[in-house]
Write a protein that binds this DNA or RNA. Structure first.
Lengths: 229, 229
DNA sequence: CACCCTATTTGTTGGACCAGAATCCCTAGT
DNA sequence: ACTAGGGATTCTGGTCCAACAAATAGGGTG
């Protein structure tokens, strides 16, 4: 089996396959490697897990390079012992990612982005569940990051999702997301639409700080220095 | 199938299995998940590829934690060069992390940090191997990041290490790290020591750009202009 | 041009057998 | 009677096979 994995790797290397090219079909690989389809499939799953190929029905295995994504995903399996320091580190990280990338963000910003952001934010008005509201909040920030077009940053943001969601949920227990979170987001988008970098950074940073401050007080009040897995 | 992977992960988490414990046998998991053995096996290969379990004949799947080493293995595969988009995304990410955090960096900077950075950089002078020089280069930037005291950022930087090393190696093939890399680093540290934020940002950004530009030319020379999907 | 149909390919199932490691049990020696 | 050794048994992952389900790309038809 490991031999088949090695053969697939060798095939990719020897054939000089580039991103976008396709591997032979599973059944072809069976005859080529003198192995059963199950064995070839198991090997292919490994190669896929390594982020080297993307396999779709009817189309086969296409060469990709998602290795960095996989590497980050490995950390999402983390035991997730969410300490207070983890929260504060993640929040500082978010500030760096979202506020710090303002220049490039404005460079790449399109009208479509602004529409989408308004659309996502409007979903907040029709929600009555904190859990769901946090998801929307997360979607908003993810969509913001996506403007950068940087897969590495997106992957990292996705990995942090569980922690970010917890921060958001805690932050929303003490205030109304329908008014405060909504208007804060709207202010951020308005600044974007006006291409006002300073306003964007100020409002976004304030938004991040407010949520986290509420969350911090919450933690101290309940005495939660550690959370679940 | 992906569902089975998720079920296995959930099983590990919910049962509170620790390293050294064993999962149920494949056949047991079949009945438990209502899936065929082949499907369970494919899922198990993925979990194994993620470094979460170590599976041996007759003994079953034992919980382990090889995730970090797996993350590095992803890139030690010589089957494929890291894609250009991955490189450029990572480099942009580094710029954001290192240059963008200048404010907080200067806030937390201590004399000890500066000493350490000079010390690391001085190691460059006694090195004749590009591989080793890249390690020192990486150590320098890691030490810089460490000033932030942010574990989340440090973890991300560590995961990117293989890619960053490749960028550095490529960048060093065309110039002398003993003179150029060394003096660029020294300039960055000097700016830090003088608490000159603008100089720090300018020099660090230039340093990052130079390495990447050299690398880009290298790739184009070989004809690798294609990006990932 | 839009719609549908078919052939191809991956996804999943159930079964079978093999090799080897762990375990149990029987035997022989003390 | 007790223990150590060795062999038989059993259990488990590893591989293979044949068939069907589901998805979909690509062609054919109106």
């Amino acid at each position: 089996m490991d031999a088949v994995v090695e053969q697939i790797r060798a095939l990719i290397a020897d054939a000089g396959l580039k991103v976008g090219d396709n591997l032979p079909t599973e059944r072809e690989l069976c005859t080529q490697f003198n192995a059963s389809r199950n064995t070839v499939r198991e090997a292919m799953r490994i190669v896929k897990a390594y982020g080297l190929v993307d396999v779709r029905p009817k189309v086969g295995a296409t060469i990709t390079d998602n290795r960095l994504s996989r590497a980050f995903e490995l950390f999402s399996f983390n035991t997730m012992e969410v300490s207070r320091k983890t929260f504060s580190d993640v929040q500082a990280f978010r500030d760096l990612l979202e506020v710090g990338s303002a220049d490039r963000l404005l460079d790449r910003l399109t009208d479509r982005d602004i529409e989408d952001l308004y659309g996502i934010n409007n979903r907040l008005a029709e929600i009555s569940d904190i859990q769901e509201a946090s998801e929307v909040d997360y979607d908003f920030h993810t969509r913001l990051i996506s403007i950068l077009g940087n897969d590495a940053i997106m992957d990292v943001y996705k990995v942090m999702k569980p922690v970010v969601l917890r921060i958001m949920q805690k932050g929303k227990t003490r205030r109304s997301y329908k008014t405060e979170t909504y208007s804060e987001h709207a202010g951020v988008i308005d600044a974007l639409a006006a291409r006002d970098r300073l306003a964007f950074q100020y409002r976004l940073r304030s938004h991040l700080m407010i949520g986290f401050r509420n969350f911090s007080e919450e933690m101290e009040a309940v005495g939660l220095t550690k959370a679940s897995a």
